[in-house]
Design a protein around this nucleic acid. Structure first.
Lengths: 240, 240
DNA sequence: CTCACTTGTCTAATTGTCTAGACAACTATT
DNA sequence: AATAGTTGTCTAGACAATTAGACAAGTGAG
């Protein structure tokens, strides 16, 4: 990194480490005392207290004066299966969650070399770019940016705006079915704009999925980049 | 978050947002001027400059005095295919990278209900816990914690320490082949300890994979939790 | 050259983070 | 009741982050 420091405060690093230890099962019930944690992390007790305050505000910890600090039952992440037939709405309904989608923004872009290769079109082709938000039971789970051929799917934006479902919008544009060809995954810290859109902490982490969906003839219909809120979603792949 | 602020400095959030915009292709060549960025993010110009300094130190940006700030060609992430036959060594060799593994720590734990269910053993069974580091061409890519039945694989730790490969260690313990049954993915900020182990920035993000590998009879042989450095690795799934 | 625009550098003041120490308040055990 | 161990709260100072303003220095166009 640059001059000095990494832009993350000590208390947040302590908080992240405690959270990580809980996730790994290293800490399961009672935390070490504040003094012991301070010694272990090489920070002042006040710094540990601030970390604990943050995790308490997140509902992960519970502090009992005079007794100690304890781990609350962890809220489960929503399971999101990924396979050759990945459908947001179906996934949510199977878990008794009410799915919905909201259009954030849409515009046109010209395909560059990378996008043309992915979508199997010529460089310079007009593409619909569709920014959307996926919600389950009122909780934002992910934000996606999709790219469609504007030539092949002239009405896709309106169709999505009406239905809130990409599957349904594609059906209206003549794609009876499609399947996932490839999914690439990575992760990064959330951007300020996305944190606001998904109403989450500004220090959250997103799981980024870049995928290509193809129709029954194997022709790409969309390239979709989705940013899942990592603390609300768990992607699951069942290997055949 | 709790009292106020999220423990991430303004300049880092600006840096993260710029990096995210570059990754999304929103910024491709020249950045807006420092003054414009400052206005856009609602921060002082010096704060923007610090963000740019951090990204420049990472090699992502290039600053030319009097002209502006520009995006460098992005360094590619190492591709890590995930499927029913996921093998670290084979994956790396195919990309002309020299794989190696290093034992960090090993000990015994007693399986709790969750672990017993995953591994198909009884609660209270002794398990080997193996912490290891995976490296490609000298660059740490991931840190894993594996759980094996100590009864079935008594010599697995020594075998791994010698070979640096879990596949090879399992072979020595009588598992001629194994395949992936299930992979669950999420992400979080890196812990301080892992940041040191993998010699990366303290504010990095890890992609967490929890997986179950089974032998040819379908019996679980290991539960493995891997933390991939998100800015060095891209997981790829080719849907059949 | 002149001008507008860009990045580089310096000073100063304000705010937030972290450390240090002290003491109060609560809990469980003896 | 006494004690050891825990969390809660207050003070104060050192240091880092952020803001504000000013000016230097490089670039490119007219």
């Amino acid at each position: 990194m640059s001059p000095e420091g990494d832009g993350v405060t000590r208390w947040r690093r302590v908080a992240d480490d405690i959270r990580s230890n809980i996730g790994d099962g290293i800490i399961s019930d009672a935390l070490p005392s504040e003094l012991e944690l301070a010694a272990r992390y090489g920070v002042n007790r006040h710094t540990v207290r601030r970390a604990i305050a943050a995790l308490t505000a997140d509902g992960l910890l519970r502090v009992e004066r005079g007794r100690g600090t304890f781990v609350n039952s962890k809220p489960q992440r929503i399971v999101y299966p990924i396979g050759s037939r990945t459908r947001f709405s179906e996934n949510m309904l199977k878990q008794s969650l009410e799915p919905s989608g909201r259009l954030i923004k849409s515009d046109f872009v010209l395909s560059d070399l990378v996008m043309a290769t992915l979508l199997g079109c010529r460089v310079g082709t007009r593409l619909h770019r569709l920014d959307s938000l996926s919600v389950a039971d009122g909780i934002p789970l992910s934000r996606s940016t999709s790219y469609f051929s504007a030539e092949r799917f002239p009405g896709i934006i309106d169709a999505y705006a009406e239905t809130g479902s990409i599957t349904e919008a594609l059906r209206r544009e003549g794609v009876v079915d499609y399947r996932r060809r490839e999914t690439r995954l990575t992760a990064e810290r959330i951007s300020a704009k996305d944190a606001e859109l998904m109403s989450c902490a500004a220090d959250a982490v997103v799981l980024i999925s870049k995928a290509i969906d193809v129709d029954l003839e194997g022709q790409p219909v969309q390239f979709i980049r989705t940013k899942f809120l990592a603390d609300r979603v768990e992607l699951v792949m069942l290997q055949n």
